[in-house]
Design a protein around this nucleic acid. Structure first.
Lengths: 73, 73
DNA sequence: ACTGAAATCGCAATATATTGAGATTATGAC
DNA sequence: GTCATAATCTCAATATATTGCGATTTCAGT
């Protein structure tokens, strides 16, 4: 999962929950600028920042053995 | 998954692969100090740094809906 | 206990994320 | 097209990760 994909996942989840960037930022106690950057894939957030945002959205990170292309679906 | 657990996952995987911190750092093009901090759970690495290290170890990040305690195992 | 390798620590220098405030642009509803 | 809201951008200030080097401690094997 790339930085860009992570940003997209956050954005989709946020929209699904029906909250805007400002509200998410407030709930996660980060600046809205930070949320914007991460969702756009332009950000290179610190792990704590990312985890806080994910947690706020009811999401979590898992670490797995890298999946090879031919294994997908 | 917490910062600490991520550090442990990296450490275990590294040992399983039989490489030391310095070698991992070199392969991932980061400073050994950075690897040390992350593995110890003291670090708050930037996402790019974390992804590079995980990738070097053949690991990847996945984002999932948070698992509730009573759902575990 | 000895030895070599691995892991950890300390610190200053540098790079980069984060923040805050305001301005600008997109987007959707009516 | 208008209006309101959401999203994005700019820029300076601040906080914090990263690096490099050396020193120190820990650890495993003999």
């Amino acid at each position: 999962m790339t930085q860009q994909e992570i940003g997209n996942a956050i954005k989709e989840r946020r929209k699904k929950l029906g909250v805007n960037q400002q509200t998410l930022a407030d709930l996660a106690s980060v600046a809205v600028n930070t949320v914007v950057a991460i969702e756009r894939g332009e950000g290179n957030p610190q792990l704590a920042t990312l985890l806080t945002i994910l947690d706020t959205l009811g999401l979590q990170i898992d670490i797995n053995i890298k999946q090879l292309d031919y294994e997908k679906v």
